[in-house]
Simulated assay, not measured.
Amino acid sequence: MTPATAPPVIPPLQPTDFIDDHAPSWRPAAPEPAQIDIADFATMFRHQPAGVAVLTADPGDGPVAMTATSVASVSVDPPLLAFSVSTSSSAAPGLLHARTLVVHLLDEDDIGVAQLCATSGVDRYADGSTWSRLPTGEPHFHDVRRWLRVRPVRVVEVPGATVVVAEALLASSTAAGTARPLVYHHRTWHVLDESSVAH
């Protein structure tokens, strides 16, 4: 199978891209230099909880997988989501050249899958009992209760990563709501339950 063509690359958004006739008028006179320390920026988001997902794909030369904490819903109609792929990940070339991917949304029972796909230098598909292929060919960890089959529609390259906007083609949810969601916070895995509800 020949590797698929990568999704089209669009240039990074500029401040003027957000300006229209109905928006407040603002025109920065010149680019404003950043006044933030990189370490401070990293700390900000280290303390921001994020849901955990695993991305899987096969661009034609073998399956790849990566754990991600950047998956977010962008739009319901059309059903769009976004995620980022680090250029340092060994899975990046495969994920970015695949025509379709599977986005696994993990709960507490899937922590083993999250840890496996976050570990460098291991064969994430060595245990054939944990995964299979969808009828359309994508690799899928079949014990994960919630997953989406998606098609990338836009990519934006930024230093150190590529941001992907994808359209959801298929959603599957088995026994949804019976397990606690898996969350990554301050470099540690956590789960959400009723005790975490704010009053």
Rank of each mutant, 00 (worst) to 15 (best):
M1N: 11
T2H: 12
P3Y: 01
P3N: 03
A4G: 04
P11K: 00
P15R: 02
P15D: 04
D17Q: 01
I19D: 11
A23H: 10
P24C: 11
S25V: 12
W26Y: 15
W26F: 15
R27G: 15
A29R: 14
E32M: 13
A34F: 13
I36V: 15
I36C: 14
I36T: 15
A42F: 14
R46Q: 13
Q48E: 11
Q48K: 11
V52K: 01
V52L: 06
L55P: 02
L55F: 06
A57C: 02
D58F: 01
D58N: 11
P59D: 08
G60P: 00
G60Y: 03
V64Q: 01
A68F: 03
A68E: 00
S70N: 13
S73I: 10
D77C: 14
D77N: 10
P78V: 08
A82H: 03
F83S: 02
S84W: 08
V85E: 02
S86Y: 10
S88P: 06
S90L: 10
L95T: 08
L95V: 02
H97P: 05
H97E: 04
A98V: 05
T100I: 02
V102F: 04
V103S: 02
L106G: 02
D109L: 13
I111D: 02
V113K: 03
Q115W: 09
L116R: 07
C117E: 04
T119G: 09
T119P: 00
T119Q: 05
G121R: 09
V122K: 12
R124S: 04
A126Q: 13
A126Y: 13
D127Q: 11
D127K: 10
S129K: 09
W131H: 05
S132R: 14
S132M: 12
R133F: 09
L134P: 04
T136P: 03
G137A: 01
E138I: 06
H142N: 12
D143R: 10
D143S: 12
R145V: 07
R145M: 04
R145A: 13
R145E: 07
R146H: 15
R146E: 09
L148Y: 00
R149T: 03
V150I: 06
V150W: 03
V156L: 02
E157Q: 13
P159L: 11
P159M: 09
P159V: 06
P159S: 07
G160R: 10
A161M: 14
A161H: 13
T162L: 02
V163H: 08
V165Y: 00
L169G: 04
L170A: 09
L170C: 07
A171Q: 15
A171W: 09
S172E: 05
S172T: 07
S172Y: 05
S173H: 11
A176E: 15
G177Y: 07
G177R: 04
G177L: 11
A179N: 03
R180G: 05
R180W: 07
P181T: 07
P181L: 01
V183F: 09
Y184H: 15
H186A: 15
R187V: 11
T188G: 08
V191R: 05
V191Y: 05
V191W: 04
L192A: 10
L192G: 07
D193N: 10
E194Q: 15
S196I: 08
A198N: 09
